[in-house]
Structures are given as C-alpha cells and as structure tokens.
Amino acid sequence: MTFGWDDLRFVLAIGRSGNLAAAATALSVNHSTMFRRLNAVEAAIGAKLFERLANGYRPTEAGQRLIEAAERMEAEALALDRELTGRDTRLSGKLRVTCSETLGLKVLTPLIRAFRDRHPGIVVELSVDNRPVDMARREADVAIRATRPAEGDLFGRKLADVRWGFFAARDYLKSRGTPKRLADFGTHDVIGWTENPVQTKAGTYLSKQLPAATIGFRASGFVSQYVAARAGLGIALLPVYLASDDKELAPVLGRLDDLLTEMWIVTHRSLKDTARVRSFMDDVGDGVKREIARLSR
C-alpha cells in the first residue's frame, strides 16, 4: 500500500504525543476522527502500529518505521515551504511571531501596531509563549527570546541586555519596611515560582539567593508575579523594563549586578531574506532595542 502524507501525519502525531487526545488536539480534529483514522491505516497495512497501554500508545516495530517515514516527509515538506517562503519579496502575507509574556505585555504590541500601519498587507499572528519554539517546523517565523540561539540554522541579532531587580508595592513597603540587603528578606514575603524555576535564569537566581521559607506566594510566570507584586503580596524579582515605570511599584536594593540576561530576535536562516520577515526584524527589532534601553534607565 502507498501512504500519503495525510495518512502518515496521524501516525506521526500519535507517535509524538503518546495518546489520542493530545494527537487530536495537535491536528485540530476530534478524538473519534483520530481513532477512526488510526484504525483505517492499521487495517490497510494489516498490522498494529501501536500497543494500547494503560498510560498511552507505544509504537510497534511497524509503527516506528512509519513514524520515521513520516518525519522524513515532514522535514522535506517544511524545507520546501521555507525555501519558497524565503523567495517571497512581497510586503504582505502572514507573519507568525512569538515572544515572552513580559515583552508582549509591555513593549511589543505598540510596535506591532506601528509596523502594521506601515505595512497593512502583513497579517501578524502573535503567540505569547515562554517556551522555546521549533523554528524549523515553522512554529514561528520570527522569535524574540531571552536566549542566544544555539541552533546552527537560525539567524538573528542581540537586541539588548536585560537588567533585573526586586520590586514591591509602595503600600507593602510602607507597612512592612524596605529591606536594605538580601539577608533582610527573611522578615518579608517573597513572590516565587510554582514549579520548574531552573527553566529561567531569574528563577534559578531566586532559588539560590533566598530560602524557600521566605516565599509567601507563588505564580507560574513573570506577568502573574508582576500583578501579585502590584497587589501587595510581596517582593518580586522582575525584569527592570517591566516594572521600572510603574508608579505602584518601588525598586528594592536597586539594579542587580549579578543577574543579567539577553534578548535576541531570530528567524530561520532560509527565511531571513523574505521581505516581511526582514522588515519586521529591522523595524520592530530596532523598536524593541530602543524601548528596553528607555525602560531600563
């Protein structure tokens, strides 16, 4: 039997997720459709592709071979898509952009509005997501992120050094006092992370500098921690550009000299000459650089 991509993508989705529900979500179909398509492929090939286990689906030998074939087909299709998109000289079309929640809240949206005013033919799709995205799979055309790109197929530039500091609501500091050093935080409430702090440099810094006993409130992202600080729940470690011009907040201890992160704008190397990608990286990238510098003074 000859398999087409439409058949293999169902097998690939199940292989990647390990269960039907997640695979159905990834392909934007319902669970019953996923189940029927898998059964149809297995019936056509005359072999089971997955073992049905209590904790999910595990590929059989035949299933693993089809998954590997699907991965090769996907890689070729994505490479062709990037190559054709890379030749696009029009300042129009869809542009997928991803950034962190703090950048999306504080800096990026007004810059995208100005970019759209200049290029109304470009439809920007903004995904606010702190996780790294797969640029090779076109999960995004442009990413603005806090880490230097390590992948050899990415192209980009550093926009800024991001400074960090502790901030708290002015009313909180008025009632509880302002700590003068980290050792004084033991008598205060600190806003920390709910889980996996080592995934961020700032989270790692916080866990090393302050004992868990000082944490009075936990949240899963910097925007939530920023909102919590404004509400008077404690002292939060935040990027300076997010909190410095907020009149509800006051800095504690000043800028931190031992915590510095970077901000980069990147795209896949095959897309760097696409007109809408190049224009966004130049115009919006320069705007981000200016705003981070202004807000960090």
Rank of each mutant, 00 (worst) to 15 (best):
A183L: 13
V223S: 07
F280V: 10
L173H: 02
S296P: 05
G192V: 06
S279A: 15
Q64W: 01
A62W: 06
T109N: 09
R269T: 10
G156L: 08
A26S: 12
K208W: 12
I235W: 03
L108V: 04
A243I: 10
K106Q: 09
M263K: 12
T267E: 00
E291P: 08
G4Q: 15
A26E: 12
S279T: 09
H188L: 00
K174N: 02
F3E: 05
R138Y: 10
S127V: 15
D189V: 07
A146D: 13
D273W: 00
K158M: 14
K174W: 14
L66Y: 04
T194A: 15
L111I: 07
L78N: 13
V128H: 11
D153C: 00
K158R: 15
A160L: 10
K174D: 13
L210E: 00
Y205P: 03
V240N: 04
K289I: 05
R255Q: 07
L238Y: 02
K180G: 12
A23K: 03
S296H: 01
M34Q: 00
R170W: 09
F166A: 05
L111F: 01
A146Q: 15
L126M: 14
I292W: 05
A212W: 05
I67K: 00
A183D: 13
I122P: 00
E83K: 13
A150E: 12
T204Q: 00
T187A: 14
N39H: 14
C99L: 12
V240M: 10
P197N: 10
T267I: 06
E83P: 08
L173E: 04
L295T: 02
Y226W: 15
V266F: 02
L12W: 03
G121V: 11
L238R: 06
G165F: 08
E151M: 13
L8Y: 03
V142Q: 04
P197I: 12
L242F: 09
R269A: 15
R157L: 11
F167Y: 15
L182D: 05
G46R: 09
A13E: 01
D246F: 03
D258Q: 03
A136C: 11
G165Q: 09
P239V: 05
I265Q: 00
N130K: 08
R137Y: 01
A62D: 14
N55W: 06
A293G: 01
D273V: 01
L105E: 07
R181D: 14
F167S: 09
E42V: 04
E248Q: 14
